[in-house]
Design a binder for these strands. Structure first.
Lengths: 149, 149
DNA sequence: AGCAAGTATATTGTGCACAATTTATTTTTA
DNA sequence: TAAAAATAAATTGTGCACAATATACTTGCT
């Protein structure tokens, strides 16, 4: 009576999460040469994208959109401020709240980013249909894990 | 003639890669309470899993299995050695090569990890079929990005 | 043999992620 | 209205990821 070689055995090739993790790392590496031209990291690019869409947000609103907290965002936002892409001001109504606003330079950077999604689509060598199925599965998993029992 | 609201517009909800990235982060967070009992991080758990399967490997072989290089693995392996789970010896034939071997304590840890895959399966609230499709899509994407033009 | 090229691992430096704690401010409630 | 609870953001400390470089050793070439 042995426990090995069952369906849930501890071998790397059966680990769904490890495939997810490796694909996510590979994705980050694939973005890097494209983002180098904009002098952004992947997460900085994501945060800029949120700001291109919403113009102004506080740290909590931003964090809920990107699923990250101030421990990650505060130093990142300081770096974006250092590059002159955003301004970190405080709310007059509630002094606890940091308001993040795009600068003109930050807004103008959007133009340089226009080609990135299509370039990444090509790199993936997958169809839009396949990728959308992948996205839906990831979104479902994220939801299920975040709303745990 | 505006560029906004095209199919490849720069909005977060259309980013497949961001869903992948967020799901991968959420996965790591979900593992953490389970791995805390073994005093392992997610990547340490993955490396131990490879060693439970192969018993002994050098850094390059290990790196090719987990898709990571010595910059990530060397400090991680030193930590596992510090916990008494592995031994980092050198090859007699080729002094450049580090040979990683399980200790008895490292081998015995496998038993405590047996329930983790099933616990994670429950947390995902997804079917094995859905998860396998997700895994296949991730594996394909990883392959396509790694074997770039 | 001697040296150039190649290989395996280690090191360095930057930037996430995240848990845990702290600080500052606001709101609630006794 | 003063203390308690709640909230927003910042800080601290650990451990990845990864590019770039360095070190040490081995192999191939002449």
């Amino acid at each position: 009576m042995t426990k090995s070689n069952q369906s849930s055995s501890l071998t790397l090739d059966k680990q769904i999460c490890f495939s997810l993790y490796s694909a996510s790392n590979a994705m980050g590496r694939a973005y890097q040469p494209l983002l180098k031209k904009l002098d952004l990291t992947y997460l900085q690019y994501i945060v800029m994208m949120v700001l291109w869409q919403y113009s102004t947000l506080n740290v909590k609103e931003l964090g809920s959109k990107v699923h990250l907290d101030s421990g990650t965002l505060t130093p990142l936002l300081k770096r974006l401020e250092g590059k002159g892409l955003i301004i970190r001001s405080r709310s007059k109504q509630d002094e606890r709240v940091r308001i993040i606003t795009l600068t003109v330079a930050g807004l103008n950077l959007q133009e340089e980013a226009q080609q990135i999604p299509n370039t990444m689509l090509c790199k993936s060598k997958m169809s839009v249909e396949e990728l959308n199925k992948l996205k839906q599965a990831c979104d479902l998993l994220l939801d299920n894990l975040n709303n745990a029992d």
